[in-house]
Design a protein around this nucleic acid. Structure first.
Lengths: 223, 223, 223, 223
DNA sequence: TATGAATGAGATTTCATTCAT
DNA sequence: TATGAATGAAATCTCATTCAT
């Protein structure tokens, strides 16, 4: 579903040399994202990241320009996945609630999958202005898309009339908050959390019809 | 509505000296909470707080044991207000959705009112173990109360059958997230945000009946 | 034996007002000396001293000019007692070893008696130049007297020919070191320690004659 | 005589990198010990040590865990040398007074040699509990050995019957005190001081026989 | 006399980053 | 590519001392 994400990072990788470099960059980003999520940006040291990625702190600077750069790419990568989800949802011929749900599910999974420890939407204020505007622009693009999805549903009568901006933010908050309490080793899987929470969040704006209700309960067990 | 909160801090204040001290402590906590919320705990310096509260950095230590102590009291105070709201809601003879809503409204207002710049639920991991357990205990008490409010509604048939723990967390996330985007000088008031977001969040679990719907629109303008 | 010590401090104390002031000064010095001895000058805070003397830190400055002043008086008082002992010893018609011993005994007791928690010879380098020279002068006067006592004994043939300066310093070191390990609640009394250590230290330079030997064992149990 | 001391610090030093590192560590310890001895632990700043060792204050933390760690290694190294001296003395077939003297001479030289500015026995109370117990244990081992040396002499009739514990402490005090007055640029060499002071200290407990007397004057030769 | 409030200077330590190898 | 060594800036916190009451 999510294909060429972080394309800026993983170039075609012609030479083995380049491939190795890309693998290292991925490992570093993975370690950084996990630590950023767990302890926060400021409380994560370059040495911590280096240790987690199994190289020296000085060597990190051969792969990234610095700590801010790491945060930037973590967020950038996550936002790319989320935007992909939006594009996919929009192409799918489905009802507004269904489209909305698929986006929300993708959002939660991007955040929680341990493969991609992402930190989108989080810690943006820790970025220096130059990088921040780039991320903010992309984030805003994502939020606008989400808002538009809601607004479209309202217009089509599939969703009730509530301020799309505020509803979108409430959805984002509920989802981003999951990184605070979700534990991979816990009882719930990331997929289950995404499934239930997205159902709840959509239900808050979905126009109630017997049909819709049933529909929702059917979708229950995804992948 | 919320009266006896932070009683540990604001004693009767018999002497003028003690009164002045309490005023200073409040001013400091206020400044600290605002900065913690804006920049995060680690990125807020004692100097910043001192400057905002208009005294020297060293003098902060005359009123509080340290930076952690400041964070502790910010959170403690906010949680007290929220627990008050829960107690009030429970006493009120009303429907489950109504009780739930009044708690959510109080939660948002506690977070956003500029009078009381609070940081409940946020940055708990920045506390040292001793203080953390105290806050975590109180926070868990609050979350349990919220979950029970939901579970009770499910049992009484007023709310649909969804995992109360997860729904509670989704609500908390949506509300806590408001501190990242809400600006007092913006178009919406804190009260308006609390009103709309709580309606949305309750609707996600409310059993749909024409009565309920009307009820909700009526409650509209809270204090 | 030691009479008008610290005469500079305890004036005739005519008025009750003055008497009370003197009592306070004594209490403060006592507390300070004990703490200085236990933790060292730099690691003892004015607040610690204030707490031990049961008054506020600010109030200390009504009785003494500052921390250095406290240290100065502690040392000054102790040196006065020791100089008294030297004078007494010199007046006493006795053998050189006996005179030496009485000085050493007085030295140890001045250091260990809990009534007078003294810190002579210790921490002199912590004093600012102005106060330091005064103390150093007095201390040197004391050390010179001790050296002279030894040199006289050498000249009279009662002590063996060893560098009096070095022997004096060895004696001082052995005695001053007692404050490091002596515990009032321990098995040995301050008097016993002074008795035995002074015997040992004198024996190291005493010319051995059967008479001398017996003499020493007789002096055994002083007050 | 003392060879394998501080083996934990100076490993075989295979690589040139490691060798350089060891040299730096030694330089730092040397500077620290000298300053600790001169001004005391608390009154010596990391900046002072850094300046004396000719590197930045921050870089000290590359070589040692902190100020306490520096003090710990200073003391540990000195105690190792002293314990070495005890072992050597015990192996040597010699009279009790001779064995005792060789230990005392080694002790003084360990303290005074400017090559190894040591601070054993001093400032132990400035260490945090964890490090303190380690040092205290080693120090106690050394003191016990010294006491045993004395007690053995008493039992064999070579030394007079005096409390070995108190005599040992007196010896330690006299020797440790040397660091307060000894100046390398002064008239006496460290060797001369060690020679004379040890003779004095042994004489205080030595059973007097003509033979012993002559023996003692013969041992003279310190390097 | 007595004290809470206040502060400037300075302490140790951390950290992102650069440099030499 | 890789890393130990090195550093300047900044962080929290302590403390002797002064001031207003």
């Amino acid at each position: 579903m999510v294909r060429k994400s972080n394309s800026r990072l993983q170039s075609a990788a012609a030479t083995p040399r380049a491939r190795r470099r890309d693998r290292q960059r991925d490992a570093i980003l993975h370690a950084a994202a996990q630590l950023f999520r767990e302890r926060g940006f400021t409380d994560t040291g370059m040495r911590d990241i280096a240790a987690a990625a199994d190289l020296s702190a000085a060597n990190l600077y051969h792969y990234f320009d610095g700590k801010h750069d790491l945060l930037f790419y973590c967020q950038d990568r996550a936002l790319d996945r989320m935007l992909d989800a939006v594009a996919t949802a929009r192409r799918a011929a489905a009802s507004a609630p269904e489209r909305l749900r698929s986006v929300l599910v993708a959002h939660v999974r991007t955040l929680l999958d341990d493969i991609e420890g992402a930190t989108a939407h989080l810690q943006i204020e820790s970025l220096p202005p130059a990088l921040r505007t780039a991320i903010v622009r992309k984030r805003d693009r994502y939020e606008r898309a989400l808002r538009r999805l809601i607004a479209d549903g309202v217009r089509s009568g599939e969703l009730i009339d509530m301020d799309p901006a505020l509803v979108a933010r409430a959805m984002l908050g509920a989802m981003n908050w999951t990184v605070t309490w979700f534990r991979p080793e816990g009882a719930d899987t990331a997929a289950a959390v995404g499934d239930v929470i997205s159902r709840y969040l959509v239900r808050g704006v979905a126009m109630r019809t017997p049909a819709t209700k049933r529909q929702l309960s059917v979708v229950r067990r995804p992948s």
